[in-house]
């Protein structure tokens, strides 16, 4: 089947079997490998992308359900909030292995877009679905606070 997708502002046509998760379309067909595979059951958040602006697990989003949506991946995350989050991530030296971090960043952008001044509890609640095996949570939370300050300034 052919599907038309709108990814990072561009229209892309892909050949895929119905039921194929968006994750594998991005990674295998479109070489947008910044979006990562961690569990395949929407339990770790490594595959998080934005669908119509909302952080969404691409491993549980079927290609046929994504044709009407605006999809943004880490490669297309360039708005003001994204820039503040990425800059804060670098300033706090959040990353270790890095495999979960695209998903963490996409979730953090979602959080700050919805709630520019989150409390510590807001951050922990919102980010709880994004697992980090290296356990960089201390710095993730510090970076989100820093990004929030940058955006307020």
């Amino acid at each position: 089947m052919q599907y038309q997708l709108k990814i990072n502002g561009e229209s892309r046509t892909v050949d895929a079997e119905p039921g194929t998760p968006l994750l594998w379309i991005l990674r295998d067909e479109l070489q947008l490998t910044g979006t990562k595979f961690g569990c395949g059951v929407a339990y770790c958040g490594a595959c998080t992308v934005h669908v119509d602006g909302y952080p969404t697990r691409s491993c549980q989003t079927f290609v046929e359900d994504a044709t009407e949506a605006e999809i943004t991946t880490i490669e297309g995350a360039t708005d003001k909030v994204a820039q503040a989050v990425q800059a804060a991530w670098r300033e706090k030296d959040v990353v270790q292995c890095g495999w979960c971090q695209s998903g963490q960043i996409m979730s953090a952008i979602g959080l700050l877009t919805e709630n520019p001044s989150p409390t510590d509890e807001d951050i922990k609640d919102y980010m709880d679905g994004n697992a980090c095996r290296c356990v960089t949570y201390v710095r993730i939370n510090e970076a989100i606070k820093l990004a929030s300050q940058k955006l307020e300034a």
């Binding site: 670098r90 990353v95 971090q101």
Partner: peptide, 10 residues
């Protein structure tokens, strides 16, 4: 490895 691991290019 900060840059590549925060913009998806690593």
């Amino acid at each position: 490895d900060n840059t590549g691991k925060t913009n998806g290019t690593a």
